[in-house]
């Protein structure tokens, strides 16, 4: 699927992104905060699964979508504004391949950023607790990749970087903050008549919600909802994996489709 142009583009995107000052700033900030949380958990002497772990999940669910969206929001529209999209597409490369290569290149930069941030937190925790915190790695990477693909999609659909940046900020607020509030409002409006399974599915439908559910499963075990009085079951690893993958693949396919049907008039 990825030819010579695509492979070159993956590397180019990776190098270009890791040198971006905003990406550096936000990654360093995440690493600093993650380390601080881990250090606090260690000094409090608590179990990482009940103290540092959940705090890191909350931190990651706020920061990682933001890092990913900052990394990806200008993937296509930035090229268009710099007048390099035409130059890029004048190379022997397909438009879907361009989208895939941009996602992979920026994805590598995101993986590096997350690995450094969580790596720092894990290193600070040390010992047995490090093993507990290490459980965060894969779901956090997947959360980041989903938001990265959403950023690429926004970038393919917009005509100006400033519009793409505003859109991803709205998306971030919507999925990270307001989505849960909306579900809460839905429960209140329906006076609790809405089924628990429906609410659970709606939570799973949001990548951030899915991430929190999965981390609950990984840190506290499958019965954690029951302990809290919940009646719904946590999603199985297979279902979770399929949901993550669906978000990424659908977003990238839509990006490729948007780029393919678009006339590159500038």
């Amino acid at each position: 699927m990825i030819g010579p142009v695509g492979r070159a583009l993956v590397w180019y995107e990776f190098i270009e992104r890791v040198r971006d000052r905003w990406v550096i700033v936000i990654s360093v900030l995440f690493a600093g905060l993650a380390s601080a949380v881990s250090l606090y958990g260690k000094s409090a002497g608590g179990n990482a699964a009940t103290l540092a772990g959940p705090s890191l999940v909350t931190l990651a669910s706020l920061f990682i979508p933001l890092v990913a969206l900052v990394l990806s929001h200008d993937a296509i529209v930035g090229e268009r504004e710099r007048n390099t999209l035409g130059l890029l597409l004048s190379l022997p490369v397909g438009r879907f391949e361009v989208v895939a290569a941009k996602f992979l290149g920026r994805g590598l930069a995101l993986v590096l950023s997350i690995a450094l941030g969580l790596g720092a937190a894990i290193a600070v925790a040390g010992g047995e607790q490090a093993g507990v915190l290490a459980k965060l790695l894969v779901p956090t990477l997947l959360l980041g990749l989903v938001f990265l693909s959403l950023g690429v999609l926004v970038s393919s659909l917009t005509s100006r970087t400033v519009v793409a940046a505003s859109t991803v900020i709205v998306l971030w607020f919507g999925l990270v903050f307001f989505y849960d509030l909306l579900l809460l409002a839905l429960l209140v409006i329906t006076d609790g008549d809405i089924g628990v399974d429906t609410i659970a599915h709606l939570v799973e439908g949001n990548p951030t919600g899915l991430y929190r559910l999965e981390m609950m499963e990984r840190l506290a075990g499958g019965k954690s909802l029951e302990t809290l009085g919940g009646q719904a079951e946590l999603p199985t690893p297979l279902r979770t994996g399929i949901t993550w993958l669906t978000w990424i693949v659908v977003s990238l396919l839509l990006s490729g489709w948007a780029l393919a049907r678009r006339q590159v008039a500038r």
């Binding site: 142009v5 583009l9 180019y12 040198r19 710099r82």
Partner: peptide, 20 residues
């Protein structure tokens, strides 16, 4: 045309060279 500010002239050219 405005190439990425984050890269050197040689790096920009190396990308197009690799691609071709």
């Amino acid at each position: 045309v405005a190439f990425s500010d984050n890269l050197s002239g040689r790096q920009v050219l190396r990308f197009f060279a690799r691609a071709r």
